[in-house]
Each structure stands twice: as structure tokens, then as C-alpha cells.
Simulated scan of single mutants.
Amino acid sequence: MKILKVLIVLLVVFSLGAVAVYYFGTNMASEKIVDEATEQMESSGKLDEVKEYVESDPELSGYIEEAKAADESSLPFNTTGQATRVLVQKVGMTELNTIRNGVQSGTMTPQEAVQKLEGKLTEEEMLALKVIAYKEIYNQQ
């Protein structure tokens, strides 16, 4: 009977550890990825190109205006870590990777990528993503 209790306690402890690693791991990984990508884009001058591209595209600039006007207190998430968890849960890593590859290779436009995400996320989640993207592009904290 004691062995069973020890096994159950160990199982609970390992389960809690796995949840903590998932929760904190996605936060740390997403923050690190975003910081590195932003740093690389700033150092190579591509961040200015992204800003120009977004501002020249009427649909994308509309997203930016929508993000500027958003009430952040009502959004379902506010950090890249939280956004990462929602995207992985609702869209899936495989689909996210497919979208990323498509946009990078030019076989998918950014608008098509947004449309794919809109089909899987709620309006509030999309608005939260737009706000996070706006903050990252324009270095808002």
C-alpha cells in the first residue's frame, strides 16, 4: 500500500512539473524568439521594410489602426507567451509551420496567412494578436 501511495505522489509531482515546464517554457521560448527576431530585423534594417510594407498595404494598415484603438484590458491575452500557447492549442504547430514556410517562400501572402488564422481564432484573439504585433513592430511596451 505504501508503494502505491509513493507512486501516486511521484506521478502527481511529475505531472505538475510537466505542466510548469510547458507553461514557463512556452513563455520563455516565445519571448526569446521574438526578441531575437526583432533584434535581427533591427540590425539588418528589415524592420523598416516591414513597417513600410505594413503601412503601404491598406488591409494590414487597417489592422494596425485597429490594434492602436483596442482596449487591452478586455483582450484574452497580452504577452507573446500567452499568444503562443493559444496559437499552438488552436492552430497547431504543423499548421503554424506551414503558414510560416508559405509566407517566407512567397507561396502565401500575409493576407492569406491572416485569413487562415481568422478561421481558427475568435475575433478577440485575433485582435490580441494584432495588438502584440503592433507593439513588436513599433517597439511599444
Score class of each variant (00 low, 15 high):
residue 137 I to A: 05
residue 102 G to S: 03
residue 23 Y to K: 11
residue 89 Q to C: 00
residue 3 I to Y: 05
residue 101 N to G: 09
residue 75 L to H: 08
residue 114 V to E: 04
residue 81 G to R: 06
residue 118 E to V: 02
residue 98 T to A: 11
residue 116 K to A: 10
residue 76 P to S: 11
residue 57 D to G: 03
residue 38 T to V: 12
residue 20 A to E: 12
residue 86 V to M: 04
residue 35 D to K: 14
residue 89 Q to R: 14
residue 74 S to L: 12
residue 123 E to N: 12
residue 57 D to S: 08
residue 120 K to C: 00
residue 43 S to R: 12
residue 42 E to H: 03
residue 35 D to F: 09
residue 89 Q to N: 10
residue 51 K to E: 11
residue 123 E to K: 15
residue 132 I to E: 01
residue 20 A to C: 10
residue 124 E to G: 06
residue 17 G to V: 12
residue 101 N to A: 11
residue 129 L to R: 01
residue 68 K to Y: 05
residue 136 E to L: 13
residue 83 A to P: 02
residue 8 I to F: 11
residue 43 S to K: 14
residue 37 A to S: 11
residue 101 N to F: 01
residue 54 V to T: 04
residue 53 Y to S: 10
residue 10 L to S: 14
residue 66 E to D: 12
residue 23 Y to I: 08
residue 84 T to E: 13
residue 101 N to W: 00
residue 79 T to K: 14
residue 28 M to Q: 09
residue 127 L to C: 05
residue 88 V to W: 09
residue 10 L to H: 01
residue 104 Q to C: 00
residue 40 Q to N: 11
residue 121 L to F: 05
residue 21 V to T: 10
residue 57 D to Q: 02
residue 103 V to F: 02
residue 1 M to R: 08
residue 74 S to V: 08
residue 42 E to V: 12
residue 35 D to P: 00
residue 3 I to Q: 10
residue 57 D to T: 03
residue 126 M to Q: 06
residue 93 M to A: 07
residue 34 V to M: 12
residue 53 Y to I: 05
residue 19 V to T: 10
residue 8 I to T: 13
residue 64 I to W: 08
residue 94 T to W: 00
residue 19 V to Q: 07
residue 76 P to A: 12
residue 92 G to N: 04
residue 18 A to M: 15
residue 97 N to K: 09
residue 3 I to K: 09
residue 85 R to A: 07
residue 57 D to L: 03
residue 32 K to H: 07
residue 26 T to P: 00
residue 79 T to F: 05
residue 66 E to M: 13
